[in-house]
Design a protein around this nucleic acid. Sequence first.
DNA 1: ATGAAAGCGCTAACAG
DNA 2: CTGTTAGCGCTTTCAT
Lengths: 359, 359
Amino acid sequence: MDIREIARRAKVSTATVSRAINRVPTVDPQLAKRVWKVVDELGYYPNTQARALVLGRSRIFGLIVSEITNPFFPEIVQTFENLAVENNYEILVTSTVHDPKRMESSVRRMIERRVDGVAILTFGMEETLIEHLRFRKVPLVFIDVGPDVPGIANIRINYQNGIRQAVQHLAALRHTRIAFIAGPLHLKSALARREAFKVSMTEIGLSPELIVVGDHRMEGGMSALIELESLSNRPTAVLCSNDMTAIGVMREAYDHNIRIPDDLSVVGFDDIRMAEFTIPPLTTVQMSQHELAKIAFRALLNEVECEPSSQQHHKYELITSLVLRRSTALAPAGGHATTHLKANRATGSRKIPAAGSRS
Amino acid sequence: MDIREIARRAKVSTATVSRAINRVPTVDPQLAKRVWKVVDELGYYPNTQARALVLGRSRIFGLIVSEITNPFFPEIVQTFENLAVENNYEILVTSTVHDPKRMESSVRRMIERRVDGVAILTFGMEETLIEHLRFRKVPLVFIDVGPDVPGIANIRINYQNGIRQAVQHLAALRHTRIAFIAGPLHLKSALARREAFKVSMTEIGLSPELIVVGDHRMEGGMSALIELESLSNRPTAVLCSNDMTAIGVMREAYDHNIRIPDDLSVVGFDDIRMAEFTIPPLTTVQMSQHELAKIAFRALLNEVECEPSSQQHHKYELITSLVLRRSTALAPAGGHATTHLKANRATGSRKIPAAGSRS
DNA sequence: ATGAAAGCGCTAACAG
DNA sequence: CTGTTAGCGCTTTCAT
């Protein structure tokens, strides 16, 4: 069943069918109705591939993510898809799963399907692969790490804002020994977060010395906490480079009978959905996945639908900001309202040897 | 840059280029090499749309899920994609987000893009939409709820196995008042789980009377726990229709100072990734998302690549089974090793009024 | 073994 | 306003 069949049955030419379907205004309403009638009766759907072939535009946007199973991404994919549906686009999602081979195949598949644009929302990406896309003049949008060249939209993340809020929130809670668990330092995003922590601490006269490095996974958070707790000047609060790390910290704390937030305040970063569901609910720096996806999609759409003459600024920014939940409290050493809780807790045994002089 | 350009530069016909690229064995190795050289130099990638148009096969599989943000699905999408990449397929993922309009657009998009098959891994789906697909003879695979007609593969989920294990595990721990928090009962899957619970209880001489209904979301688990705790014969263990419900139960329990598993054992269903990360780690019935995706993909591939003559049985089964973590313990009323913990806990205040005679 | 040419389903000139 | 027709980039007979 193709456009010719419709034409035959409606007793018009294929051109008219095409025009009717695409709602070209100049077509006679009588004929249009006749066409639509047949279309509906037969349940005809135009073949998008053929259409793409002649139009030279596929109406597909590519979306490359690190891995869809990372809780940071599903929200992004969903928003991206919603926007795509609204605008009659299709999306082609691929995960790189941190594998160079997969990154390559991701890019290849995008090119083969002739996508109209690609959002690369991934942590780290081979520059050479990007060249393939650039070479073909495929509109691109990057998060955070994109090369700073014309024709490429970059979404800059303002890490400083949210991290400053987090640090100041903790400071206001009388914390002075605030630790930071960094992510893998070969990632620009992890590096940027750590730097933001350093300046935020320095700004308020605290020295950012308690920094250990994790891996942005729960395991890294778990071992980081152990490391931190074995220090002589243990922290009373810890800011994590992402939420999974914070979840690892809370899990390890649970195993060692360290109470969150009474004994230790913890703050995450990202605000993944799960952050609401942890015990206790996680106070974290939000980097809105919804906003991010929205900006990325708009950037792509803008690049595609507008003339290349109207070269937009190609600069987009995403602000981060703290969302308060229940994983932070007044510093325990201060002798405040939390004191009785501390006393209560003292009956529990902490399994990590206390090298320093807490309590 | 198209196949003609390659042909021109390699001084062969487009037919030869096509044959070389598709590794037709009869092509002269000399020529093939010449072609490949040009292809590599120019970075040529064949246009998949054009290819699909002439071949009549898109090499795209559709994957319809309820919502990608539901933690049950990302794992499935990832596995499905991995398999697709291995087999040179593309995937077109759409979420229905429980919206009839979106279900319709999902199906329409699948048809428009001429997918070679669709896996409908969703909870509930309009029958009429499925007709559109069937009408076009698109190979289909369903989870659990598919109509039992030829040409449609069905993945039957064996709920009974895992749920029986869960119930017997709880019973072995001396629990007798075992509650069940069901999912939305208009879903076949939720219904099946509840039925499995009923027979599992009955099998071992326990009456399945403590059943309340949730919504498969955290909120439902939270209010279900409140409901359960206000009963005169409060349960000592609760089996949940899915993991999100269990997480809601644990969260509500935390707020009311009910300790898991000391005061209340909880078991989930699904074994989503998050189940490992909860506090405490959740004992749950695993319904392997990895296996599910694998079966679905194989079913589709089988349907597409094999002659319709070799009508396979079209029946696939996924077994569920219990995975033990740390959210279950001996029933508190039994006077066992947990007693001292109970005494300890007694100092904490339970905010839900104790209507019955626990303690 | 290779090339010429037809055609996959659709849209957009162009003519009428 | 409508129809005829020439491609879009590719694969595949059918000749050679």
